[in-house]
Simulated assay, not measured.
Amino acid sequence: MESVELLAPAKINLSLDVIGQRENGYHDVRMVMQSISLADQVRVTKKNQGITITSNVANIPLNENNIAVKAWKTMAHNFHLSGGIQIHLEKRIPVEAGLAGGSSNAAAVLKAVNLLYDLRLPASNLAEIGQSLGADVAYCIEGGIALAEGIGEILTPLPTLPEAWMVLVNPGFGVSTKEVYQALNYQEVSHHPDTECLVQAIKKGDWRTVADQMVNVLEEVTVEKYPQVGEIKKALSDAGLFSLMSGSGPTVFGIAETKEKAIEAGKKMQDQWKTVLVAHTV
């Protein structure tokens, strides 16, 4: 086996709560994440020497600063792997969008290297390696739906919800996760999610209650800095969808009652916003 190609799914946050801040600056969170059908394609190919990374987009670092390259370097160092690597990222997930595109790419590289070199590492080991790369990488190894705690590395898988369709709207610019967290004063957050109620609704397969309980405390920061995010959220709500910003933004998703309603709402959004995508949970 000389080449592996994997899908790297995006994620949305069904909730995001910040409950503390550590001395090292990292925040303690409680959030529920869900994989969706929007995905990048990641192809990893062995070569004799060196590292090359290519992509269909130009607005990501195509060098050692890319988290996908860092994933390869970590695996090569940990397991004394020889030779080089070629990574190609066919991006469909918007960049710096709150959808874990970079983390999902890194997770795909970890899984691809595991296959290419026949390391036979279980997902738990790959997730542990992923923690050193970024808070969402461990989650992206498994995907699905999970409660994430700590700085995002303590994961509790949750029962799969019935498939739901949604519209994702991105205003066409990226947002720095680090800057949003730095601007947040978690002690002044006005409205926290009821995470326990949300988890119970997920266990019952009750999407209506899940949608009613969706809260992201980072919205207060991002909407103030980027009013377009608030405008998108209102537009999706006005279209009859349950809307929430994902991660630190700026992407906002709206959950529809049916696939047809998602497609209809998506068409309404296309005239005003740069990137409008229809997806479903996976």
Score class of each variant (00 low, 15 high):
residue 139 Y to G: 06
residue 139 Y to M: 09
residue 139 Y to E: 11
residue 139 Y to R: 06
residue 140 C to K: 03
residue 140 C to D: 04
residue 141 I to K: 01
residue 141 I to A: 05
residue 141 I to C: 02
residue 142 E to G: 11
residue 142 E to W: 09
residue 142 E to D: 15
residue 143 G to L: 09
residue 143 G to R: 03
residue 144 G to C: 07
residue 144 G to K: 09
residue 145 I to S: 01
residue 145 I to C: 04
residue 146 A to S: 06
residue 146 A to E: 02
residue 146 A to K: 00
residue 147 L to A: 02
residue 147 L to Y: 00
residue 147 L to E: 02
residue 147 L to M: 04
residue 148 A to P: 01
residue 148 A to H: 02
residue 148 A to E: 06
residue 149 E to G: 03
residue 150 G to R: 00
residue 150 G to Q: 02
residue 150 G to H: 03
residue 151 I to A: 03
residue 151 I to Y: 04
residue 151 I to H: 04
residue 152 G to S: 11
residue 152 G to L: 07
residue 152 G to K: 06
residue 152 G to W: 06
residue 153 E to M: 05
residue 153 E to Q: 07
residue 154 I to A: 10
residue 154 I to G: 05
residue 154 I to C: 06
residue 155 L to I: 12
residue 155 L to R: 06
residue 155 L to S: 08
residue 155 L to M: 08
residue 156 T to V: 04
residue 157 P to R: 06
residue 157 P to E: 08
residue 157 P to D: 10
residue 157 P to V: 06
residue 157 P to H: 07
residue 158 L to Q: 00
residue 158 L to S: 00
residue 158 L to G: 01
residue 158 L to E: 01
residue 159 P to A: 03
residue 159 P to D: 03
residue 159 P to L: 01
residue 159 P to I: 05
residue 159 P to H: 01
residue 159 P to V: 02
residue 160 T to S: 15
residue 160 T to P: 08
residue 161 L to R: 00
residue 161 L to G: 00
residue 161 L to K: 00
residue 162 P to E: 15
residue 163 E to P: 11
residue 163 E to H: 12
residue 163 E to C: 11
residue 163 E to R: 14
residue 164 A to E: 14
residue 164 A to N: 09
residue 164 A to V: 14
residue 164 A to G: 13
residue 164 A to L: 13
residue 165 W to N: 08
residue 165 W to G: 02
residue 165 W to S: 05
residue 165 W to P: 01
residue 165 W to K: 01
residue 166 M to P: 02
residue 166 M to D: 04
residue 166 M to E: 06
residue 166 M to R: 04
residue 167 V to K: 08
residue 167 V to T: 13
residue 167 V to S: 08
residue 167 V to F: 08
residue 167 V to Q: 10
residue 167 V to L: 08
residue 167 V to Y: 11
residue 167 V to I: 07
residue 168 L to E: 04
residue 168 L to Y: 09
residue 169 V to G: 08
residue 169 V to Q: 10
residue 169 V to T: 10
residue 170 N to Q: 14
residue 171 P to R: 12
residue 171 P to K: 13
residue 171 P to L: 14
residue 171 P to S: 14
residue 172 G to S: 15
residue 172 G to K: 14
residue 172 G to M: 11
residue 172 G to A: 14
residue 173 F to N: 13
residue 173 F to T: 14
residue 173 F to W: 10
residue 173 F to M: 14
residue 173 F to G: 12
residue 173 F to E: 13
residue 173 F to L: 14
residue 173 F to A: 15
residue 174 G to P: 08
residue 174 G to T: 15
residue 174 G to D: 15
residue 175 V to G: 09
residue 175 V to H: 10
residue 175 V to R: 05
residue 175 V to T: 14
residue 175 V to M: 12
residue 175 V to L: 09
residue 175 V to K: 05
residue 176 S to C: 07
residue 177 T to M: 09
residue 177 T to W: 08
residue 177 T to V: 10
residue 177 T to Q: 03
residue 178 K to H: 15
residue 178 K to M: 13
residue 179 E to I: 06
residue 180 V to Y: 14
residue 180 V to G: 11
residue 180 V to N: 13
residue 180 V to P: 08
